[in-house]
Simulated scan of single mutants.
Amino acid sequence: MPLFSQTITDFWESQFLNGDIIYNDKTFTVTINHDLSEDSRVMVLETADGRVMAVLTSEMAEKLDLFRGQELSELNFHQKLNEGGVTLHGADYLFYFSEAEKNALLQENQEGTLRQLTEQDDAIFSAFESSASEQDLDDAYVELDHWAVFGSFEQNRLVCAASMYPWGEDVQIADLGVLTLSAYRGKGHARKVVRSICKYAYEQGYEPQYRCQLDNEASRFLAKAAGLTLFGKWDVISPDCTIRESK
């Protein structure tokens, strides 16, 4: 059985292998894709098995003097990015459920202190937000008006919430964020909420996706505790980087 679903593998292959492959070896691939958006005109993916794939627009390839037939390595590629003034935003870890963990998740029953939230929970959710720091709110990006929202309660108080939204128009992947109020962390609320909202996503035909920054140890621990498996590290061009013309 494949480790991850075909939805996931097909999506990432379409992002990084769709176009003109100008370099390919056992561990490193560079592709030129004319259809990349401005925000994703340079992207790098390192999968958990050590494979590295890079994709960029033809304009960016020309600026960085990248062309078919030249010998490349991951180090060479990053040197060319640096020389061309291209900075990356900062990688995210990507986590998904393996096929085996997905099957186990779908057999679970939702626990009593958990439920899906709706617009009728506006007052409850507002109180939850007011108890969290601005930094936590920004990092988690949990919103009541997202596609799906689940919460965990303690003594009728919302103490942990997760929300999801479809990650793109043409892909059945739903990206999730989760936030637990600081006084209630370490009690298993986040793990239960993540598993519940992910089960809901599967039932709606979506593949749940969990992302976090590389230095967020607590979030990485939560992903693994919830049964998710590391797929890889994904990075994109920084929106405010400066691009120097190639010589």
Rank of each mutant, 00 (worst) to 15 (best):
V171D: 03
K192W: 04
E207P: 10
S5W: 09
E38W: 04
F95G: 07
P166T: 00
K102A: 10
R185N: 01
T229M: 02
A161E: 02
P208C: 05
K233H: 01
D92W: 09
E62V: 11
Q116H: 14
E169K: 09
E245C: 05
L181I: 12
I32M: 02
E74N: 11
V236F: 15
I237F: 12
T7C: 12
R41S: 04
G69C: 05
L105W: 05
I173G: 01
G205R: 11
S58W: 00
R157E: 13
A127M: 09
G177D: 09
R185T: 00
D35R: 01
V44F: 12
F95T: 13
V159H: 08
E134S: 15
A225G: 14
E143F: 07
L114V: 14
L222N: 06
S73P: 06
D138W: 05
Y165S: 08
N103K: 08
L88G: 07
V55T: 11
A183W: 03
T29F: 01
E154P: 09
L214I: 08
E119G: 14
Q135V: 14
Q155K: 14
V30I: 05
A162F: 05
A123L: 15
S219H: 10
N33F: 04
K63Y: 00
V193T: 11
S131A: 13
D65L: 05
S37E: 07
R68K: 08
Q110A: 12
S246C: 07
E169Y: 02
T118G: 11
D121M: 07
N82P: 08
N216S: 04
I237L: 15
A174D: 05
S133D: 13
E245Y: 10
I8R: 05
E134G: 10
G69S: 02
T118Q: 06
G84K: 00
D136L: 06
A161P: 13
F77Y: 15
F95Q: 07
D139N: 14
F125I: 10
A218D: 08
A127K: 15
Y202I: 13
A61R: 08
T180C: 03
E203R: 14
A48L: 03
G19V: 02
V194A: 06
I22R: 06
F150C: 03
E83T: 02
Q79G: 05
Q172C: 07
F28Y: 09
L45H: 01
Y23E: 04
W12L: 01
T31F: 00
K63F: 03
E143R: 04
F128C: 10
V171P: 02
